[in-house]
């Protein structure tokens, strides 16, 4: 029953509150690339990989009150805070599925800025290309974000660290 929704709740359980829709999108994408069992389809959009399927799924878990969504004004724009609710905890406890414990990796990701996670997820999106070509893509497609060579190196170093702690491919599906 709603296995894909339950995975999302399991992620919230491990991360605690996530602030920002963009951050949530990038965290799920990076988690998926690190072999956590997410199946949402992603495409490259304005701020890097984005999944419409995930957006709708988040909307669903919020409407079911499994996750609380708090909308607040920050500067000139709206910001959203997401957190697993008690009802969501109850639902999760009834589900008989295994979601790997990646609390350390997910919490660490949650402490990064959404701009950095946008860069990390974009690099992962092009992971089959050599670093030089990835850099070209990033600087062309994300010109407005003004990422530097140092930012890119940091993103690669971060991805390497993630790979070291991530579950093995095929461990969960």
């Amino acid at each position: 029953m709603l296995n894909e929704h339950a995975k999302l709740l399991a992620l919230f359980k491990q991360t605690g509150e996530i602030i920002g829709r963009k951050k949530l999108q990038k965290m799920v994408y990076i988690a998926k690339k690190m072999n956590l069992p997410f199946n949402e389809k992603y495409q490259l959009h304005m701020f890097g990989p984005y999944s419409e399927e995930l957006s709708l799924r988040v909307e669903e878990v919020c409407q079911l009150q499994f996750v609380s969504e708090v909308k607040e004004k920050k500067g000139g724009y709206q910001q959203y805070r997401y957190e697993l609710s008690e009802k969501g905890e109850d639902f999760l406890s009834m589900m008989s599925f295994h979601f790997p414990d990646a609390t350390g990796m997910l919490e660490d990701m949650n402490h990064k800025s959404s701009k950095f996670l946008e860069l990390v997820s974009t690099v992962l999106y092009f992971e089959e290309l050599p670093k030089k070509e990835v850099a070209e893509k990033v600087f062309k497609l994300k010109a407005k974000q003004n990422y530097s060579e140092a930012d890119l190196d940091e993103a690669y170093a971060y991805i390497n660290r993630l790979h070291q702690v991530a579950p093995k491919k095929g461990a969960y599906s």
């Binding site: 701020f47 419409e52 724009y77």
Partner: peptide, 18 residues
Amino acid sequence: SSSDLPYDFYRPGEKDER
């Protein structure tokens, strides 16, 4: 569920990712 479908609505707003 609706999220199982490969079609979408128009999402307005300048801060959306699309």
